[in-house]
């Protein structure tokens, strides 16, 4: 494997966004790119990352390899990279280590690190293709604000989507709260628009603790997409350039 990223910031942000949710992960490398799928310890949330080969220049992967990496270790090493450094990942066939180099674009500084790999026996889940009943695309900062504000009151949020819009509601010991958003096109700045596409109304309840965690990815993209269908996991997607993405799935809470 040899994969060169123009900006180390992208990998730094991705790892930062997921390291509190999952710890030991296989980075599955093949000629289409680098993928990661891992569930949190409670088996309630799942991270699915895809960094397409087009996000790297150049990208070469001659044989499929799984790089088992501890994200705390990776975070320690990535801290040594500046956001605008050029980052190159390298691994041999059947590797013991993954090699990372950080090149400063404006000086001759080159740093180089090896991280020991681990054997990770990871459950790999088959995620069915789903036609979601509701898809909401909103500013990622807005979604972060909603989850943060409501998590101060309650452990859970009900998300209801109808043709009127989407409503986030919570009930807690001190009282209750809600935030409603309507479909809205911001003509000056499309990134601030709220798009709702609905085939049937949905109402689902989720744990806010996980949603707050997912929002650590907000720095990766101006926009976030929420996909919901009744009685299936929520999909929260942060799109990256070149069709790469960071997705989170969260199992719902269901009434007794």
């Amino acid at each position: 494997l040899e994969a060169r990223l123009e900006q180390a910031a992208m990998l730094k942000r991705v790892v930062d966004a997921i390291k509190d949710l999952v710890q030991d992960c296989n980075f599955d490398c093949n000629d289409s790119g680098i993928a990661l799928q891992a569930m949190d310890n409670s088996h309630v949330a799942l991270v699915s990352m895809m960094l397409k080969s087009e996000s790297f220049s150049p990208f070469r992967c001659d044989r499929n390899i799984a790089l088992g990496i501890n994200l705390t270790s990776l975070t320690k090493v990535l801290r040594a990279a500046q956001g605008d450094d050029i980052l190159t990942l390298k691994a041999e066939d059947a590797p013991d280590v993954v090699n990372l180099t950080f090149e400063s674009p404006e000086s001759d500084r080159l740093s180089e690190y090896d991280i020991k790999l681990m054997d990770i026996d990871q459950e790999h889940l088959g995620i069915p293709d789903t036609e979601y009943a509701a898809t909401i695309t909103l500013p990622s900062s807005e979604f972060s604000r909603i989850t943060r504000d409501l998590s101060a009151l309650s452990e859970s949020v009900a998300i209801e989507c109808t043709k009127e819009g989407v409503k986030f509601t919570c009930t807690g010991d001190i009282g209750n709260g809600s935030v409603s958003l309507r479909q809205h096109t911001n003509v000056e700045n499309d990134a601030k628009s709220v798009d709702i596409s609905l085939t049937e109304p949905v109402a689902l309840t989720f744990s806010l603790k996980y949603l707050v965690n997912f929002c650590k990815a907000a720095g990766l993209s101006d926009r976030v997409r929420l996909c919901l269908s009744n009685e299936v996991p929520l999909l929260v997607e942060y799109g990256l350039s070149n069709n790469s993405y960071l997705r989170f799935y969260l199992a719902p809470k269901i009434g007794d």
Binding site: S156, S207, I254
Partner: peptide, 14 residues
């Protein structure tokens, strides 16, 4: 009250 469902209830274990 509601209880938390696990992902394995929805996704296949490969």
């Amino acid at each position: 009250t509601s209880h938390q469902v696990k992902l394995l209830a929805f996704f296949n274990d490969r």
